[in-house]
Design a protein around this nucleic acid. Structure first.
Length: 274
DNA sequence: AGCAGGACCTGATGGC
DNA sequence: TGCCATCAGGTCCTGC
């Protein structure tokens, strides 16, 4: 599932190939992927526009165009963006293909059809609720130990639920929430307000470290995720708890457990994580 | 207000 | 073998 490291890896791949390219046409195979404007309006009005640069905010990918407008793409669970120097042969899960004037294209492919595409002027980005309400980027200054301490105070929800809340911090999903909690030695079902100052500090560093390492390894491929060139990530080889239920904790040998927290499959070491 | 749970989707998996 | 039920997960929406 594309979380921050996966989306950042895709963005870096697209940054190598998209800036300067001009849209020639848009093929729509599933119009439901386009939320703003309509798919038909996108196809009618996008041709002629040039891509200036790429960006990312949380799990949202951004393509900035020459008229200041921006295309926002959220891949949700199974979405893929694949760049091709030649025409794309669509399959049953290809929903949108952006064709460029030089014959290259960008294909949006999504087995579960949850992924979403928006195209709007910057002053209207507030229409996209998830983006408008997004919390700080975890690898930027605004996200720090003091910010976490302030947000955790008096919170009755579990610490895992808070890590998954995009208004608290942008870009964490189920994999990296579990991995960060293991590295910080904190049980995922602990009430957020119960964490000590030392645990908050450990969790802050764990979140930053796990994201940086995952970006270094080009993300985690469990099944669907691919980068902009169709390549897999490698961080799945470095996961310590996610989907490792029944296997020994690499730190203490205790069997990793799986429980449900905040409605999500949650993996942790019952001995290391207090 | 703040949180839990369902809906949205489809493919993979497991039980009988 | 085949069929059905269940599960996976990010975000929006509803309801408590």
């Amino acid at each position: 599932m594309p979380e921050l490291p996966e989306v950042e890896t895709i963005r870096r791949g697209l940054e190598q190939v998209l800036p300067g390219r001009v849209f020639a046409s848009v093929d729509i195979y599933y119009s439901g992927s386009v939320k703003i404007p309509t798919a038909a309006e996108l196809a009618a009005q996008l041709p002629g526009h040039r891509i200036i640069k790429t960006g990312r905010r949380g799990k949202y990918l951004q393509l900035y165009l020459d008229d200041q407008s921006v295309i926002i793409i959220h891949l949700r669970m199974t979405g893929r963006l694949i760049f091709s120097h030649t025409a794309w042969e669509p399959d049953k899960h290809t929903h949108i293909v952006f064709n460029f004037t030089d014959g290259s294209c960008l294909a949006f492919h999504d087995v579960r059809k949850f992924g979403t595409i928006y195209w709007t002027a910057p002053e209207r980005l507030c229409q996209i609720k998830g983006l408008a309400c997004l919390g700080p980027e975890p690898l930027e200054q605004e996200f720090c130990v003091q910010y976490m301490a302030d947000k955790l105070a008096n919170r009755k929800s579990s610490i895992k639920a808070l890590l998954l809340n995009q208004e608290f911090v942008a870009g964490l999903g189920n994999i990296y929430a579990d991995e960060a909690l293991h590295r910080a030695a904190v049980r995922p079902d602990r009430p957020a307000a119960s964490l000590t100052k030392a645990e908050i500090k450990a969790l802050y560093h764990a979140v930053c470290e796990v994201l940086k390492e995952a970006i270094k390894w080009r993300g985690t491929t469990m099944s669907d995720y691919r980068d902009a060139n169709g390549g897999s990530g490698q961080f799945q080889q470095h996961l310590r708890v996610y989907r490792r239920a029944g296997q020994p904790c690499q730190q203490c040998g205790t069997s990793i457990e799986r429980i449900v927290v905040a409605g999500r499959g949650t993996h942790f070491c019952p001995r290391c994580q207090k």
